[in-house]
């Protein structure tokens, strides 16, 4: 069942078109990613979903509500983590959680939330003294303290170190597993690939693709590359005659074979037939990165 429906959304700031035409639906209980280069219109799109901005065109329904008209009711059901938004420097972690929980009629137990997000050690620390990762975790905690049905997280892991980023990802999966629908804005491929059940790729204010991460990767008409070092010299021609192979190169004893389809199997079969052992075997395949670049650059 769709919990968020966005149809023909359009928004411009003066002469600048931020969102040209964006439509997508988010199913209940999934992590839905909005992926795109900087300035593609991701944040404007989610701000319209949050009811923070008035779209010029299009319709938005969130959990059956109109984000502008039913703003007050939506605030109860949606938790928002904004890009680059802060708290007062000197507010303590527990005070912020206690305060935000007082805004909701049926809040989560903020002490439990604080423990779940690993902030217990910082309960008396002031916001200004927290590390980047701790600030982000507090921000997520504040987005969740009202027991929302939907959480919107914008550029959640920007500026975090790799470990903090991975911890945050575990956290988001935990949120999804507790039944909250997550709308995640990101420009990190690795994050999108790891977390999202489905993704909308937005470029220049338009949706260029909506699919699972694997589905997006498979759209790229990709070449694979197999590299290895044979245990004894092998004739290049043995590989050239394979249907799957498009190119064979030999650099200083290392083969680089490019091709399509079941390339690895075809190459290893030849090696096995000739009793050659391949060492340093590596396969380069298309990633979400390649898919993203090919989706957002071809015009």
């Amino acid at each position: 069942m769709a919990i968020i429906e966005v149809a023909d959304l359009g928004k411009r700031y003066g002469p600048k078109v931020a969102v040209d035409e964006v439509s997508f639906t988010v199913e209940e209980g999934e992590i839905f990613g909005i992926l795109g280069p900087n300035g593609a219109g991701k944040t404007t799109t989610v701000e319209c979903v949050e009811g923070m901005r008035v779209p010029d065109r299009g319709t938005i329904r969130v959990d059956g509500l109109d984000p502008r008209r039913d703003r007050a009711e939506l605030r109860q059901r949606m938790g928002v983590q904004l890009q680059e938004s802060q708290l007062p420097e000197r507010i303590k972690v527990r005070e912020a959680l206690d305060l935000y929980s007082s805004f909701y009629p049926n809040p989560a137990d903020w002490r439990e939330l604080m423990a779940r997000l690993g902030l217990e050690g910082q309960r008396d620390a002031e916001f200004g003294k927290l590390s980047g990762g701790q600030k982000q975790r507090l921000s997520v905690a504040l987005a969740l303290v009202g027991r929302p049905r939907i959480a919107v997280l914008d550029e959640l892991t920007t500026g975090l170190d790799p470990q903090a980023r991975r911890d945050t990802w575990d956290l988001i999966e935990g949120i999804r597993d507790s039944g909250v629908t997550v709308l995640l804005v990101t420009h990190f491929m690795e994050e999108a690939e790891r977390l999202c059940d489905r993704l909308a790729v937005i470029d220049a204010g338009r949706v260029v693709a909506i699919d699972t991460p694997a589905g997006l990767v498979s759209r790229v008409d990709s070449e694979q590359r197999v590299r290895f070092r044979p245990s004894r010299p092998v004739d290049e021609a043995l590989f050239r005659e394979l249907d799957e192979v498009t190119d064979v190169r030999l650099h200083g004893g290392q083969f680089v074979i490019t091709g399509r389809g079941n390339l690895l199997h075809a190459v290893t079969s030849v090696l096995a037939r000739n009793q050659v052992v391949a060492s340093e075997l590596r396969i380069d395949q298309a990633s979400l990165d390649d898919a993203f670049v090919s989706l957002t650059t071809k015009k």
Binding site: R75, S85, P88
Partner: peptide, 16 residues
């Protein structure tokens, strides 16, 4: 300062 740091915006996403 609250406005500049996004504190007001953040509160705007809550029922308060």
């Amino acid at each position: 300062t609250y406005r500049e740091r996004g504190v007001l915006r953040r509160l705007g996403t809550t029922p308060l």
